[in-house]
Computed example of a mutant assay.
Amino acid sequence: MKIGDIVIVSDLGEMKIYRAEPRGLEAEAGLKPDHVKLDLIDAKDYVASHWKVQDIVTDQAGQFKGGSQGRGEFSQGSVGERHELEKHLEEEVIEAIAKDISDTVSANNPPKWYLGLPETIYARVMEKVSPAVKEKLFLGLKKDLVKTDKNDLVEIFKK
């Protein structure tokens, strides 16, 4: 990792974007360009991933007792519909993550960039990232690194 590189770590709830900056005077002078520290340049929260289905849909399956028992034409909350809504919300967040990655890398134009995403969403996010941005990816890890200390990230991505 060298000065100017970008590190992006994300999960379905948040994203952190770091830039590699010189750690000392020698690194600043170009004598040790790999002697870097990470500075947080942006952070994003994906609020939709924190929503619960009951916050969005007012009637849950079987909530009302009586004639239709939640299965009539006005029922809004069958179990199948809730599952589809959860999948839809997750897809929206994945698209937002991919767009934010593409926008960040395009705007900063780093020499290289590094990515850490949980294994469960890595492939789905990467298929939505723009091809030009994918080409610059130096190292992508299928790990949830959002809660990892930024000083540890340098070492993790150096390995």
Rank of each mutant, 00 (worst) to 15 (best):
A107P: 00
S78H: 06
D59S: 07
S49M: 09
Q63G: 07
S106M: 07
S78L: 08
V93H: 05
D55W: 09
L89A: 12
S78I: 04
E84R: 11
Y46G: 14
H88L: 12
E86D: 05
S75P: 01
G66Y: 00
D100Y: 04
V79S: 14
E90R: 15
T104A: 12
V57L: 15
H83V: 15
L85D: 00
E84C: 02
K99W: 02
K65N: 07
T104I: 09
L85M: 15
E73F: 01
A48G: 02
S102L: 10
H83W: 07
A61W: 01
E81N: 08
S78R: 05
E73L: 11
E86S: 14
I101K: 05
H50Y: 06
H88F: 12
E91P: 02
G62E: 03
G77C: 09
N108V: 09
E73N: 06
V93G: 13
S75A: 15
E91Q: 14
G70Y: 01
K112I: 09
K65V: 00
D55G: 10
H88N: 03
S106R: 09
S78M: 07
I97W: 10
V57N: 04
I101V: 15
W51H: 06
P111S: 09
I97F: 14
L85G: 07
Q76Y: 01
N109C: 08
V79N: 06
D55E: 15
E86Q: 12
L89F: 13
W113I: 15
I56N: 07
Y46C: 14
G77N: 03
S49Q: 05
H88Q: 03
E73K: 10
H50D: 02
F74G: 02
V47C: 00
P110D: 02
Q60K: 10
I94Q: 06
Q60F: 07
K112N: 14
V57E: 00
Y46H: 13
I56G: 08
S102R: 03
V57P: 05
S78F: 04
P111M: 01
V53S: 14
K87R: 10
A98V: 11
G67K: 09
K112Y: 14
V93R: 03
E86L: 15
I101R: 05
S49H: 11
D59G: 04
T58P: 06
E90W: 00
D103Y: 04
V57H: 02
I56P: 05
G72K: 05
W113R: 10
R82E: 08
E91R: 11
R71I: 04
N109T: 09
E81V: 11
Q60M: 13
